[in-house]
């Protein structure tokens, strides 16, 4: 397996625990001295993310942010979603609309199925340059901020290409380096421990030490689903909305129930990305913001183990 040379050459090549990303380890001398206690704690730094992975991660993050903002801009041009081949204008399953009361005040009204919600300030009606304005998503969430469909589409399709190319590069790289099969696909042992892992996550007891050197089962499932189901799905549903591509992707459009269904599912995947993003950021913070950020920028990730011996499990 090809490995990018870790930055700094003094990395002693040590263990990689069964099926982990750990590649090389070094006691970290930049760390403050450890308080003496029993059992002895040892900190070492592993080289966790290779340079290509780190670059692809950040390209992906920028793409997602811009695709989300420009996508919401596109959504605002007709802030309603339907199921089926065509729009049943009287029956959107989701709509972000507005009503005006007799006093002239604007109210944002979000409907989901038969339910109506007052969402003034957020959806349907929000402040734009200090004025209550009728628009689906608020201007702080859209790219560009003002209503400007043509420009939103320009951003969306440019970054859609980068997102898709970056995604293909990632999958090829992950297959080639076996990052995919080793680190992202849950192992048999992972599946057996899934109950324990769910409870631990719920109690915010995250794996420490050597266990943190590899992705745990929930992490594996989350990354796998986000990459292949959300990522693959959002691209396919984006293409299924293209009238030109529909001349060859008719089967796909029919599979999901029609072009308007494809638009709805595309939107739901985008919301799925927001949900993943929030959980992802939360986990990054609670499991050590500095360490995690360093690992995805410089590749170096510190792990703490109880005794030195355990590193050779």
């Amino acid at each position: 397996m090809p490995r990018a040379e870790p930055p700094g050459s003094e990395y002693a090549c040590a263990v990689a625990g069964s099926g982990t990303t750990a590649m090389a380890s070094i006691p970290e001398d930049a760390m403050p001295p450890q308080p003496v206690e029993a059992p002895r704690r040892v900190k070492r730094v592993i080289y966790r993310h290779t340079l290509p992975l780190r670059i692809m991660h950040w390209i992906n993050a920028v793409c997602l942010l811009i695709l989300l903002g420009s996508g919401l801009q596109i959504f605002n041009a007709h802030p309603a979603l339907y199921w089926g081949q065509r729009s049943h204008f009287d029956h959107p399953w989701l709509s972000l609309g507005a009503t005006q009361t007799r006093d002239g005040k604007l109210h944002g009204v979000t409907t989901i199925g038969a339910h109506r919600f007052n969402t003034t300030g957020w959806f349907g009606v929000s402040s734009m340059d200090g004025q209550p304005t009728v628009r689906g998503f608020p201007s702080w969430a859209t790219i560009p901020g003002p209503q400007w469909l043509a420009m939103g589409r320009a951003w969306h399709f440019f970054f859609a290409w980068i997102f898709a190319i970056n995604g293909v590069c990632f999958v090829l790289y992950a297959l080639w380096t076996r990052h995919l099969t080793r680190d992202l696909v849950p192992t048999r042992r992972d599946w057996l421990g899934i109950g324990r892992s769910i409870i631990d996550h719920a109690l915010l007891q995250h794996p420490h030490g050597e266990e943190a050197a590899r992705y745990n089962v929930l992490q594996r499932i989350a990354y796998f689903v986000v990459i292949f189901v959300f990522g693959g799905g959002v691209v396919l549903m984006g293409l299924a909305m293209s009238p030109r591509m529909d001349s060859v992707l008719g089967w796909l459009v029919d599979l999901v129930g029609g072009r308007q269904s494809a638009r709805s599912i595309h939107f739901l995947f985008a919301m799925g990305f927001i949900a993943f993003f929030l959980i992802h950021i939360f986990e990054v913070i609670v499991t050590g913001l500095g360490n995690n950020l360093r690992s995805i920028i410089t590749g170096r990730y510190a792990i703490e183990s109880k005794t030195h011996d355990e590193t050779h499990q």
């Binding site: 959504f75 007709h78 339907y82 081949q85 909305m241």
Partner: peptide, 12 residues
């Protein structure tokens, strides 16, 4: 045939 508006809606 289906008519797809740039705004996002479709009619047939």
């Amino acid at each position: 045939t289906r008519h797809d508006c740039v705004e996002g809606w479709s009619v047939i």
